[in-house]
Design a protein around this nucleic acid. Structure first.
Length: 420
DNA sequence: CGAGATTCATGTGAAGTATACCTTTAGGCTTAA
DNA sequence: AAGCCTAAAGGTATACTTCACATGAATCTCGTA
């Protein structure tokens, strides 16, 4: 991205009248020389026809929710496994199949899918309900209504006729971590108030120990059935990649060993298939951007770097202003005293106050900043631990395990977006 | 020298406040008979 | 008189503040060996 911008600038300086021409050229080269046959196939939300090495899990899930086709309530299901092990994919796949079948048999099924991780979309009980009702085709305000009224609306909405609702809650551990497990209890209890419809819940979690942290009541009802998704090994990853690459790229685009390398990288990170596919896709995009016709091994490395950078950059970019200021304070402090490698809340807060003064921004209290730091920790941007320094008090010890070049990038990004 | 008290800097919980937004309601205005 | 619009009243969620108390190991204190 940066590279492209740089080129544009240069052209711009050379001859402003040529600008549209140049853009045209860029577009042209994109259209003509694509090495992709169907890039969608490599994208994260694509559901392929077959899912290799997940036959057993598919069968299990299908067996568990099959009763819905007879309008019987399926057991609640809890699915867990590390990221990129195909949990969401399998569930989506079965959801589609189930829909087809339900249509044929004239059974009324509703299967809303909600990702609880999305900040500002579904990270409170209220917002999850808003999202849920929205999926059912009804608009509700983003604020202002009592939560239990949302429950009532939801209830009435699905109870209008005899039907089964299978609620899919992805990244459920994130939501519970943030807002507690009470909403799950409420959801599981809805059934007792439903006369026509029935609801069951599919919870998906990346956290293997998540179920243990739940309130026993919730645990027993949510975990009526449990399925573990094991990680893929390198060989399985290769098969997955090969299957998808076959249709995604035009022939003769991949050099020898590209797939193996992608698979090896992903296998090293607990067999994350999504990661492997991203690697392949990004590598392809990079190749295309450089007007080459062949994905070579070194592009995989480039793609790997780009993914890591992009992921964090995106996370940083989308933060609210106060969060950005806090993060900037953390990063600047780290750059200042590199040798120490750890900093404390108090230092951050002071520096943060200074930054606020510089940007003429209202500053938040330390109480709030403390919570913000805790949130960054949860998001995995920083690494914080509450420690006691004995006589010298108690604080969070914050570490930042990011490569320096990335650090600088974020730094610049923040400085830019905050107008410093 | 060691057990227990003290201390510091901030974590953390609860309650309160400001803001933005929602629904309800009542009054006022328009309209059409 | 019926219908519609508007503004006020009363309510909620969320982000933040204020207040108050909790934490936990380094350090201090003081009695004892």
């Amino acid at each position: 991205m940066n590279k492209k911008r740089g080129q544009n600038n240069k052209n711009n300086e050379n001859n402003k009248n040529n600008l549209t021409n140049n853009i045209d050229q860029i577009f042209d080269s994109f259209i003509k020389q694509t090495i992709f046959q169907n890039k969608l196939i490599l994208q994260g939300n694509y559901t392929p026809e077959t899912i290799p090495h997940r036959e057993k899990q598919i069968a299990q899930v299908a067996a568990i929710i099959a009763p819905s086709l007879r309008l019987e309530r399926p057991s609640n299901l809890f699915i867990y496994g590390l990221t990129g092990t195909g949990k969401t994919l399998v569930v989506q796949y079965i959801k589609n199949q189930l829909f087809k079948r339900a249509e044929k048999q004239n059974v009324s099924l509703i299967i809303p899918y909600i990702n609880c991780k999305l900040k500002k979309v579904a990270d409170t009980e209220y917002r999850i309900l808003v999202e849920l009702i929205g999926k059912l085709g009804e608009k509700v305000p983003a604020t202002g209504l009592p939560t239990d009224q949302l429950y009532h609306r939801f209830l009435n909405l699905i109870n209008r006729k005899k039907q089964i609702v299978i609620l899919i809650l992805d990244e459920i551990d994130q939501a519970v971590k943030k807002i507690g497990d009470e909403f799950l209890y409420n959801l599981t209890r809805i059934n007792t108030e439903l006369t026509n419809a029935q609801i069951s819940i599919i919870g998906i979690s990346n956290d293997l120990k998540f179920l243990d942290t739940l309130d026993p009541r919730v645990r027993s009802s949510l975990g009526e059935e449990e399925i573990l998704f094991p990680t893929y090994n390198a060989l399985q990853l290769q098969k997955i990649l090969r299957d998808r690459a076959k249709d995604a790229f035009k022939p003769n685009i991949l050099s020898e060993g590209v797939i193996a390398k992608c698979a090896a990288y992903a296998a090293r990170e607990h067999g994350d298939a999504r990661r492997a596919l991203d690697l392949l896709r990004i590598a392809g995009e990079l190749v295309e951007r450089n007007n080459k016709r062949k994905i070579t091994l070194d592009y995989i490395d480039k793609a790997k770097q780009k993914i890591e950078v992009d992921k964090i950059i995106l996370a940083v970019e989308t933060q609210p202003k106060q969060f950005q200021l806090t993060l900037l304070a953390i990063i600047e402090l780290f750059k200042k005293n590199k040798e120490k490698n750890k900093i404390f809340t108090g230092d951050i807060y002071n520096f943060y106050r200074e930054l606020c003064k510089r940007t003429r921004t209202e500053y938040l209290t330390q109480r709030r900043v403390s919570d913000i730091i805790a949130e960054f920790d949860m998001q995995g941007v920083i690494n914080a631990k509450v420690i006691s320094k004995g006589r010298y008090g108690r604080t969070r010890e914050i570490r930042l395990d990011l490569p320096t070049n990335l650090l600088d990038k974020i730094n610049h990004l923040l400085v830019d977006s905050l107008n410093l």
